[in-house]
Structure formats: C-alpha cells, structure tokens
C-alpha cells in the first residue's frame, strides 16, 4: 500500500519539475528562475525564518552583501524592527553586462509573540545570514504546572 502512495508522490514530483521548467521557458530564457530566486520577499524585505526554542526566539534573515554597519536592529517591548541598506558594489571602470542584484534599503518589522529580555539579545552576521537570538523574559517562558 505505502509503496503505491510513494509512486504517486514521485509521479507528481516529476510533473512539478516539468511544470516549473515550462514556466521558466516563458518567464525568460536565461534569467534567474526558481520559485524564489533572489533574497527578498515580494514587498522588498529580506526573507526571514522565525523559531521558538522555548528559552528564546530566534530570527534568521538573508542579508547578502551587507556588513554589520549596514544593518540596524531596534527593539521596543515586543516590537522588533530590522532595517538595512545595500550599497552598490559595482567596480569602477567596468562595463555592466548584467545587473540583477538590487541596491536598496528596507525596513521590516515584527511583533514578537512574547516579551524578551532586551539586554541579552545576541546578533551574529555570518555569510550573509543574520542570526538573532532573543531570550524570552521570565514571564514569557514556558512553565510546567504541577497538578496538586
């Protein structure tokens, strides 16, 4: 029974692949393709992942080509604002053959699901990925309730 379902899965995978190739043909022959190329979401902000590890919230954002000076992180209560700008890294005295990477600035704000300890927030930028660890305030941490 299960191998049968698996076969269906694989058939649909093949069809999905075919469909995406077809889509690509119309979008542009040699342009970037894929369901989510580039590093930004539709409204011009970087893509992020958000996790809840129990002790802390963790935010991961794609910020290629930005140094830590280009990025501003602000927090007020449970309101987190991430902004940054990407400056042009175009070399001088070169002729541009193809320019797909944007020179932009962005601001993206988040409402955190709970209060955090703002003094203990850690931010690390590595390989164009920003990782933000926001330890939860005592009140927001999960608690085990013992039955009396």
């Amino acid at each position: 029974m299960w191998t049968g379902a698996n076969d269906f899965d694989r058939m649909f995978d093949a069809m999905d692949l075919f469909r995406s190739r077809l889509n690509r043909m119309f979008v542009g022959y040699d342009g970037p393709y894929g369901e989510n190329f580039g590093w930004r979401v539709a409204n011009g902000s970087p893509r992020t992942n958000f996790y809840d590890t129990g002790e802390a919230f963790e935010l991961l954002a794609e910020l290629p080509g930005m140094s830590k000076e280009d990025i501003t992180i602000r927090i007020q209560g449970n309101y987190l604002e991430l902004s940054g700008k990407r400056t042009s890294d175009a070399p001088k005295d070169y002729k541009a053959q193809r320019v797909e990477r944007d020179v932009t600035s962005f601001t993206r704000s988040f409402t955190l699901p709970g209060d955090v300890n703002a003094d203990k927030i850690k931010a690390v930028l590595k390989d164009g990925l920003l990782s933000l660890v926001l330890p939860k305030a005592e009140a927001a941490k999960p608690k085990q309730i013992s039955i009396s």
Partner: peptide, 30 residues
Amino acid sequence: EKRQELPRITPVVDIYENEDEILLFADMPG
C-alpha cells in the same frame, strides 16, 4: 523521477567587464 535532494535556485548575479577581466558577483546568502 527521483526526488531532488535540495531545491535548486538560481542566484542573482551582476556581471561587469573591462579590458582585462570579467567580474561576476553572485548572491549566495548562508
């Protein structure tokens, strides 16, 4: 039809050229 291990996406690139070389920048965060 085997499932691909990782989804494949195309990085966005800038390409510049002068008399001496071709310069290619590609965004690959992470």
